[in-house]
Each structure stands twice: as structure tokens, then as C-alpha cells.
């Protein structure tokens, strides 16, 4: 490849995959230098992607309540009285249709840990708390986003409260938890 072909290669992959040019150059400069033996393993940029207009189905109200009303809703089984959060349209034990119930948004940490390494999407946030919270009035635990200044203060039994982001999208990330002061 000559200089102009290399530039086209970078531009094509930048455009196709949204990888910044400087990253492409950093990773592929050697490959495109013409010095790599023909038999050496060839690595190439690629991604798998599908777009959705995804329906939350029977959970739809839960996400609308977060977005519109800053409310967390659970689902109660009329037969066994268990309250699900995350909600479900039917009780999985009794097979009865559930009823919506508003929750207070408070709860208690039932298990927690500190994450120092994580996925590409959250790598800039470490260290952060990963915790299971049992929301008051429910029979289930739920993985939650926890935002705290000092991660060493969080332990099992810590009481927490839901906070809602200013900008909400109708997703579970609209809500996060902080210890109750």
C-alpha cells in the first residue's frame, strides 16, 4: 500500500465503524506498513450491530413511570401477594396476572461489591459500587446503579434511596441510588 491507499483504508474503516482515526492508525500502522509477512495472522476492524424499536411489552408502564413521574412501580400477585420489582405481567409461581403498585423508592443493600475493572461502556466510571437492593415493599432484589463519593462506606444493610436523573429516557438508568443520609 502506498501513502494514499493507507489514508483511504483509514478513512473507510473510520466511516464504517466509527472508530476514531487516531485509534485506527495506532492499531494498524504496522499492518499497513508492508513489513508484515503474508502468512502472519491478519486482524481487521469489525462490529456486529442491529438497530431496534424495542417494545418493553407488559413492562412498558414501569419505564414510562420512571420517565414521566419519577416513580418506581412494582407488580403484585393477587394470589400469593408477592411484589415483583423488576415487574412482571404474571406471577411466575401462581401464573396469575399481577397488579401495579407504586413503591416508595427506598430499600436496603443485600449484597455489594466494588468494581475496579469493567466493560468498555463503563470503563471511565471505576471504581463504582455494584449492589443488589431489596426495595421496600417488594420480595425481590434488583441490581442497581449506585452513586456514592466514598465506595468504602457501602455495606450490606446500608439503607438507600432512589434518585432520578434530570434528563430521563425511559430506561433503568433514569434511576440511581444513594445511601439515605
Amino acid at each position: 500500500m502506498n501513502e494514499s491507499e493507507r489514508e483511504k483504508w483509514y478513512a473507510y474503516h473510520h466511516q464504517k465503524f466509527g472508530i476514531p482515526l487516531e485509534y485506527l492508525k495506532r492499531d494498524y500502522e504496522e499492518e499497513l506498513s508492508g513489513k508484515v509477512p503474508m502468512e502472519a495472522p491478519l486482524e481487521v476492524p469489525d462490529k456486529m450491530e442491529v438497530l431496534y424499536k424495542y417494545s418493553f411489552g407488559q413492562q412498558s408502564r414501569f419505564f414510562r413511570e420512571l420517565r414521566e413521574n419519577k416513580k418506581i412501580y412494582g407488580a403484585r400477585c393477587p394470589e400469593c401477594s408477592k411484589v415483583y420489582c423488576p415487574p412482571r405481567s404474571h406471577c411466575s409461581l401462581c401464573y396469575q396476572p399481577t397488579e401495579w403498585v407504586p413503591l416508595k423508592g427506598t430499600g436496603v443493600i443485600t449484597a455489594c461489591t466494588v468494581q475496579y475493572f469493567t466493560t468498555s461502556a463503563f470503563i471511565r466510571k471505576v471504581p463504582f459500587i455494584c449492589a443488589y437492593v431489596q426495595l421496600d415493599g417488594t420480595d425481590f432484589i434488583m441490581l442497581t446503579n449506585m452513586e456514592v463519593e466514598d465506595v468504602s462506606n457501602i455495606r450490606v444493610g446500608t439503607r438507600v434511596k432512589a434518585h432520578f436523573r434530570e434528563e430521563r429516557h425511559g430506561a433503568i438508568t433514569d434511576v440511581y441510588f444513594r445511601p439515605v443520609d
Binding site: S55, F56, G57, Q58, Q59, S89, H90
Partner: peptide, 12 residues
């Protein structure tokens, strides 16, 4: 299209 059901709700 079942806009009112997720895959696990259909399975149910």
C-alpha cells in the same frame, strides 16, 4: 408483531 408482549411474555 406483538408490540404488547416481550419474547418471555409470549413464551409465558
Amino acid at each position: 408483531r406483538w408490540t404488547d408482549k416481550t419474547y418471555f411474555e409470549l413464551a409465558f
